[in-house]
């Protein structure tokens, strides 16, 4: 439904989006996940035809924005990061205006406006002037605007920012309800949100795509790794020195200082058996284990590992190296 091919956007010297490609299939919810400034909004602005791309192609339902902007734009509903509202207008006037500029046939306008109002639960607010509404309601009016014209593709840029937890849930439910007959691309920097509603996830960072896959595969790929959290009574340095001797440990991912006598490690093992070796080695060195538990990778870890680079070795290592010198 939405095909993005080698899309690049440059602002002068800065490359905001660098050669990205991905596809959103029909009636699929695609999560667009990335830290602030990753290029999410820029990409979305290009998909809806507001920003012209420096190079690359965007196809909506097989049609290109360059060749047939009018038809393509009719297929898209867009909720930008900042809802595009005319504050002086009443909610109903605003939605009718949007129906007008989206060229919704006159006979359908009433119906579509009423449906958008009821879907966002703002029917009671329809006679209020937008500037007197709270942020949550304004966001919903913006969302209602995106639904007008019955577009097949919905592009939602951080739709839940600024909403309270209840409203966030409502928006998520709404997205779930719309999934039947819409292709939805929605961006967020909140992981639970993306993992709660999306079929597939695109992880973007610094203008580049780091991963595109289903949530299960993304976490699954990481689950192939055997990661343990080990809490030991002993100084960081000395424990790490012991751990480094064990050949079965692939990687020390994190070192946490708990207090003077206790330290916590996040370690990746080559096989489950290595666990026994660790335990015996610890006992030999008179370090008692407080806790050892297996980690299940959350989407958060996946996200962190994709956006920050895969392995992480703690500060303690460097200190040891210094001591050797």
């Amino acid at each position: 439904m939405v095909e993005i091919k080698n899309l690049t956007k440059q602002y002068g010297q800065i490359t905001a989006v660098n050669n990205i490609s991905f596809t959103a299939n029909k009636n699929e919810i695609l999560g667009f996940l990335g830290p602030n400034g990753a290029g999410k909004s820029t990409t979305m602005n290009m998909i809806v035809g507001y920003l012209p791309p420096t190079s690359g192609q965007i196809l909506i339902d097989g049609m290109s924005m360059n060749e047939n902007p009018k038809e393509v734009k009719k297929k898209i509903g867009y909720l930008p990061e900042l809802p595009p509202l005319y504050l002086d207008m009443k909610v109903i006037e605003y939605l009718k205006f949007v129906a007008g500029i989206k060229e919704v046939p006159k006979s359908e306008r009433e119906h579509q406006v009423a449906r958008a109002l009821s879907r966002l639960k703002i029917t009671d607010m329809r006679k209020r002037v937008i500037k007197n509404l709270s942020k949550g309601y304004r966001q919903r009016v913006g969302f209602a605007q995106a639904l007008i014209g019955d577009p097949q593709v919905l592009i939602l840029d951080e739709p839940t920012v600024g909403l309270d937890p209840n409203q966030t849930m409502e928006v998520r439910n709404l997205i779930n309800m719309l999934r039947k007959d819409h292709t939805i691309i929605f961006s967020s920097h909140i992981l639970q949100e993306v993992s709660a509603v999306c079929d597939r996830i695109v992880i973007i960072d610094k203008g580049q795509i780091k991963a595109v896959d289903t949530k299960e595969n993304l976490t699954g790929a990481a689950e192939g790794d055997i990661v343990y959290i080990l809490k030991v009574e002993g100084e960081c340095k000395s424990v790490e020195a012991v751990l480094k001797k064990i050949s079965g440990i692939k990687n020390i991912m994190e070192v946490n200082y708990v207090d003077e006598k206790t330290s916590e490690f996040k370690i990746e093992l080559e096989a489950e058996d290595v666990r026994k070796e660790i335990i015996s080695e610890m006992l030999e060195n008179d370090m008692s284990i407080i806790e050892i538990k297996k980690m299940t990778m959350s989407l958060e870890d996946v996200f962190a590992s994709y956006t920050r680079g895969r392995s992480y070795s703690g500060l303690a290592t460097e200190e040891i190296d210094d001591d050797k010198k």
Binding site: N45, V48, G49, Y50, P69, K70, K73, K74, I76, Y78, P80, L82, P83, P84, L85, Y86, L87, V98, I101, K102, E103, Q145
Partner: peptide, 14 residues
């Protein structure tokens, strides 16, 4: 300023 330009530009209006 009000960011409504996006709205106008992303509708069939040219």
């Amino acid at each position: 300023r009000a960011n409504t330009e996006v709205l106008l530009m992303s509708t069939p209006l040219n």
